[in-house]
């Protein structure tokens, strides 16, 4: 008969083994991408696949970067992502505050209606949205990528739910001191909402950085392309003609900001998953 301590230790070991296995499932494709970014074109197609490159081709990174204007793609991606993230934080927090704290006729119905927009699949909205962008003259501009991304029903929901948990007494005290709605929002609510700002910020940043389909439809010229669009420019119609080694090198470079952000905001990311109920 094993002691309680030993049983606990065995259970811990088993848990670690399972976690390591799951971790490996997640990490191996990523590792594969990194190692493939150092292979030459022929090695990519070798079967059975070779994990380690025979010789590390550092030049893949240089070649990928020089083959296309990746500096421009990077710049566009940064502009779009930063604007959308900041914009969405601003609009969602204002919306969330209004739905959580202000009293006005039809508030909850409007909120439900806003939430209902999340149920409309994007392909249904694609052509009407495209026509709106065309009418505004925004096709092939970064504005077309930024403006529709500034508002999010999900972000507003997240903010509202968080703000509902802030004690009303704080607001009441500020109101007695003569705070306007704007000042209440800015001086009381925003500082207390830092965790949810971080969560929504990380989700929005990652979502926008990786966004592919909408930019694909909207952007036509190379100078306005973002990183994910730039990446597929390597892809040829015949798979064998695609320089996968360069794609892997460019992918590694693209994913770097996301990794840095994830490392910095890991705590909030996990918190966000808990708060929003989103699971992978």
């Amino acid at each position: 008969m094993l002691s309680r301590k030993s049983r606990k230790r065995i259970a811990d070991y088993l848990t670690y083994i399972v976690l390591i296995l799951f971790g490996a499932i997640v990490v191996i494709p990523f590792l594969w991408m990194i190692l493939s970014s150092f292979k030459d074109a022929g090695e990519i197609w070798t079967f059975p696949p070779v994990f380690m490159p025979k010789k590390f081709q550092w030049s893949n990174y240089r070649d990928a970067w020089n083959a296309l204007p990746f500096d421009r793609f990077l710049f566009n991606s940064i502009i779009v992502t930063v604007c959308v993230t900041i914009g969405q934080l601003f609009t969602c927090s204002l919306g969330g505050y209004a739905f959580a704290r202000l009293r006005f006729p039809g508030r909850d119905k409007i909120f439900l209606l806003y939430l209902a927009t999340m149920m409309i699949p994007f392909p249904v909205m694609m052509i009407p949205l495209f026509i709106i962008m065309r009418t505004l003259g925004w096709i092939d501009t970064l504005t077309a990528l930024i403006v529709p991304g500034l508002f999010s029903a999900w972000g507003t929901f997240l903010m509202r739910q968080y703000m509902l948990g802030i004690p009303k007494a704080l607001e009441d005290a500020a109101r007695i001191d003569g705070c306007s709605y704007w000042r209440l929002y800015w001086n009381i609510i925003v500082p207390l909402c830092k965790p949810v700002f971080a969560t929504l910020g990380i989700f929005t940043f990652m979502g926008t950085w990786n966004q592919f389909f909408w930019p694909l439809i909207m952007i036509n010229t190379i100078s306005a392309k973002t990183l994910p669009l730039g990446l597929v420019m390597f892809q040829a119609r015949i798979a064998a003609e695609t320089p996968w080694h360069l794609i892997m090198a460019a992918s590694c470079a693209i994913v770097l900001p996301i990794i840095v952000l994830f490392i910095i905001g890991q705590k909030y990311y996990v918190k966000g998953i808990v708060m929003s109920g989103i699971k992978g």
Partner: peptide, 15 residues
């Protein structure tokens, strides 16, 4: 940033 992004897109709008 907002003005910057808009400004960047202006040449594209001419497309």
């Amino acid at each position: 940033l907002g003005i910057g992004a808009y400004g960047l897109s202006i040449p594209g709008c001419g497309n």
